[in-house]
Structures are given as structure tokens and as C-alpha cells.
Amino acid sequence: MTTETKTEKWEPRIVALVCNWCTYAGADLAGISRLQYPPNVSLIRLPCSGRINPFYVVKALQHGVDGVLVSGCHPGECHYISGNLAARRKFAFLQNFLNYIGIEKDRAIFTWVSASEGEKFARVITEVTEKVRALGPATKLIKELDCV
């Protein structure tokens, strides 16, 4: 991936960790509605945003993705009642901490997208892709295997 990012044709690569019940369904709706959004994002479906270990975000960055998006149900709409509320506290700590040690704020983005917001999902992906594109290829925290 690192060699690819050095070429002129660099395209941001984004991992989206999404909850099964809202954001994934929202992404489905965006697809069914034939909405266009950049193809730079890979969705990873998890049961709930509360299930997302903050380590996933750090690991994704370590493995060389340019941006991580985390998305779940809006507060109060969690399928498991309060998973996203617990997640919100973890992510508040995580984003502050990653930014504090010098990782750009837009490398890890947190948002809420519900199952009926297909249009919002497309907009989120478009805007996140633009934000990450503006930052350029990720250089921090990446594990360079050739130096082992």
C-alpha cells in the first residue's frame, strides 16, 4: 500500500466501521436509491458501535489506511438501547488523545447515520473522502514491514 500511495494516482483509502442496525442499513438504502458516493470506502459491519473496540481504529491506521470513519445509530436509537452512548464516551477520549499525540483530527471521524438516512450516508462518505484527500496519504503510525 505504501508504494501505491507514493504514486501520483493516489486515492485515499478509508475504512468505515459501521453498526449493523443503522449505518449499514443506511448504506444499503443509499445503494438501493442509486446514490453516488466515492468508491474509496470499505465498510466493515459490526453488531453495534458499542462493539467497536477503539483499538480497531488504531490498528486500521497502523495498517496504512488514510482515514477511519466510525458510525452508528443516533443517540437514543441504539438497537441495544445504549451501546452508542457508551461508545460516544470512548470515542471522545480516543479522538482527543489521537489528536493530542499529533495524528490529524480528520484521520479518525465519528458520526451517526440512521437506517433512513441513505442520502446522509452518501454525503458523509463524500465529505469524509474529501477531508482525507486534503490531508494526503497517511504517514504516521504506519507499520513499515521492510524495516524489520
Binding site: P75, K90, W112, E127
Partner: peptide, 19 residues
Amino acid sequence: APLSTFRENDEEAFIFEPE
């Protein structure tokens, strides 16, 4: 402890909202 509980009105300024 902060991560063993939550409030409905917790700080949410860091949540990204598209324009």
C-alpha cells in the same frame, strides 16, 4: 468511572455532521 457509565447529554462536539 467515566467509561462504565454514560449520560444522554454527553459532550458531542466531536461528532462529524456533513453540511
